[in-house]
């Protein structure tokens, strides 16, 4: 019988939806599914995790040292909590990517990155070469499986009326003091979160400046969409780095993705291939983005985007 431990990701006292996507992946593996909440004040996060369909138990460890997600501080706690588990999962977000290899190495096992599909409890499909190949990997059957879950490949588990029991854990492990949180500079906005939004509007280099990016924001607001960007737009300084979509940025799966002035490098396309419908607006009819777009429109974005915003009434 598999026993799967999911390390909860949370921010500002709220459970990140990426955790609910890990629950869907764990359901596919099958077995008991427990969620580990490591936080300074875990109660509300633990309650949110306990409400997710499929979760059998939540283990909650309160510790002021967990106020910020420092991999070096969290890893020994994950290992202490994971003692009798067959699988440990976390989302393949910057949180999980930072933490899980540290956990795996301390356990002396390999890590499966970006788990897309489950073949069986030890056989998984994951992308390599920016998603240009998918490999099936077999993890040793006699070892704990440590994996990050490619969130765009899995739906969010729903929150139901039933609540799994919450158990408070006292993890008696020595925590290092060699890593200290200093600050988080967050581009807080009222727009939907890029990673979980059902609609995303992204802009690329063709926008030409940070000021011109306003037309992207305006269209996004009309659609109730999150805003993303290509690497070129981030490198050029039009928008902050947390908006980058692609191989080395965020991998997303919105129902609607609107790519504006984005040529469609393979590194960008790998971040959007799970989108439901892709719309591309670009002046270059030969741009690779049109190879993957469900609806393509060739023309001047500075004319077409305001027109589109208007047409959406």
């Amino acid at each position: 019988m598999n026993k799967i431990l999911i390390v909860a990701e949370h921010q500002d006292g709220k459970l990140n939806p990426a955790t609910a996507r890990c629950v869907s992946c764990a359901l596919k593996i099958g077995g008991e599914i427990e969620v580990l909440v490591l936080a300074a004040a875990p109660d509300a996060i633990a309650r949110a995790a306990a409400a997710l369909d499929g979760v059998t138990r939540v283990r909650s460890a309160a510790n002021p040292a967990n106020a910020h997600a420092l991999a070096a501080v969290l890893a020994p706690q994950v290992i202490a909590a994971a003692a009798d588990f067959t699988h440990v999962l976390a989302p393949s977000t910057t949180f999980g990517k930072d933490l899980m290899p540290r956990v795996a190495a301390l356990l002396g096992v390999a890590q499966v990155s970006d788990l897309m599909q489950v073949e069986d409890a030890h056989r998984f499909v994951r992308p390599i070469y920016a998603g240009n190949a998918l490999i099936t990997v077999q993890a040793p059957g006699d070892q704990i499986v440590v994996a990050t879950v490619r969130t765009a490949s899995w739906p969010e588990a729903k929150a139901g009326a039933a609540h799994a029991p919450i158990e408070n854990l006292a993890l008696d492990v020595a925590l290092p003091a060699h890593t200290r949180f200093v600050a988080l500079q967050s581009g807080k906005s009222d727009r939907p979160d890029l990673q979980s939004a059902s609609r995303v509007v992204s802009g690329g280099r063709a926008l030409g400046s940070a000021e011109n990016f306003q037309i992207i924001y305006a269209l996004a607001d009309k659609l109730g969409a999150a805003v993303g960007a290509s690497r070129a737009a981030v490198d050029a300084g039009y928008v902050p780095s947390d908006m980058q979509v692609g191989q080395t940025g965020k991998i997303i799966a919105p129902a609607l993705y609107v790519a504006i002035g984005i040529s469609g490098a393979i590194q960008h396309l790998t971040g959007i291939k799970d989108a439901g419908t892709i719309v591309a607006i670009n002046k270059d009819a030969e741009a690779p983005i049109f190879e993957v777009a469900d609806f393509g429109l060739v023309g001047d974005l500075f004319k077409l985007v305001p027109e589109l915003q208007q047409a959406l009434g």
Partner: peptide, 26 residues
Amino acid sequence: HLKTTHYAPPPKRGKGVMVKNVADLV
């Protein structure tokens, strides 16, 4: 540590359609 047992190309997205103007897109 991990054995790769199979390589596969990613599923292709079907090629979509080009629309003529904003009205058609909407």
